[in-house]
Nucleic acid binder design. Structure first.
Lengths: 151, 151
DNA sequence: CGGATATGTTTTGATATCAATATAATATTA
DNA sequence: TAATATTATATTGATATCAAAACATATCCG
């Protein structure tokens, strides 16, 4: 191996170690996966995933909302929201209606059944989230602040 | 509406507002989506996604690693790792070999081509991550600590 | 009015994710 | 040694994710 090749490999080895330890994207994906699994497990008895729980939460309003603002709030692509609504609509937990004011737009509404499921799931969330916060052993506020600053 | 129905709706409305503001699972998913999009964009010229970049980073070692430890480090299901390796193997960036010591196990190795791509992508990461840290306007250390505590 | 442009959603195709199950190989133990 | 249990990975089926392109409707402007 030439001197330059050796230097390159050292540079790359050092860079990858730094990235493994410091990359916020990597750390965020790991945490997101771990949390999704945890809440998926906890919510499974109620027949919804953690992502569906979050979406039902967002839709639990007096007035129906359009897709754009919901996708923006969830920091997801609009087409992802379209996909995510399908299982919820099939299960009868949300309804999607063409907005008569602007026929391109859709009004998203949680159904009575959706509220029933959400109501029960909220109890699970409270238990599980309290357990999580006590387990992680760090102040959750700066963590939340950092996550908010990113999204 | 009966008094009890009204109370239920108030309870649920208050709970959902609290959850929207405080759920670490929701906030982590949002941040993870936003960061994945950002680094996917930045890395696109090099033909890899943010997740593939992280995986190449983990595989950039002297000694080959088995799938179990890699999945654990990435906090992902083993079957997800199996799936994630496929595009990288197809592109010739990693190779997967049966471990002769234990024929159930696989040895994961980054290829020379993989190192070449990784090397170029590291430059992108450095620029993009520095920009990210300066943009978020909060100390990244407590954020990283919180994310580590979760995963 | 009518063509160009802009906006909102859906579709398509690729990757990502997990649980459950299956397959393969090793290790244990009767 | 043979049956059983354990370990490591792969497959399957469902949901999640995004970009790009398609589609539908609305707005703008000449």
């Amino acid at each position: 191996m030439s001197k330059n090749q050796a230097k390159n490999q050292t540079y790359l080895a050092e860079a990858t170690i730094h990235i493994r330890d410091h990359c916020l994207c990597l750390h965020a994906q790991r945490a997101a996966r771990a949390l999704a699994r945890r809440f998926d497990d906890a919510l499974r008895p109620h027949g919804i995933t953690s992502g569906q729980f979050s979406l039902l939460n967002v839709l639990n309003r007096q007035e129906p909302v359009a897709m754009g603002p919901v996708a923006k709030f969830l920091a997801m692509d609009r087409s992802t929201l379209t996909a995510n609504l399908k299982p919820l609509e099939r299960q009868g937990l949300v309804s999607i209606e063409i907005d008569p004011e602007d026929r391109r737009s859709r009004k998203l509404l949680i159904t009575a059944e959706g509220r029933k499921v959400l109501r029960a799931a909220v109890g699970v969330w409270k238990r599980e989230h309290a357990a999580l916060e006590s387990e992680i052993g760090v102040d959750p506020e700066p963590l939340r602040a950092g996550l908010r600053a990113i999204a």
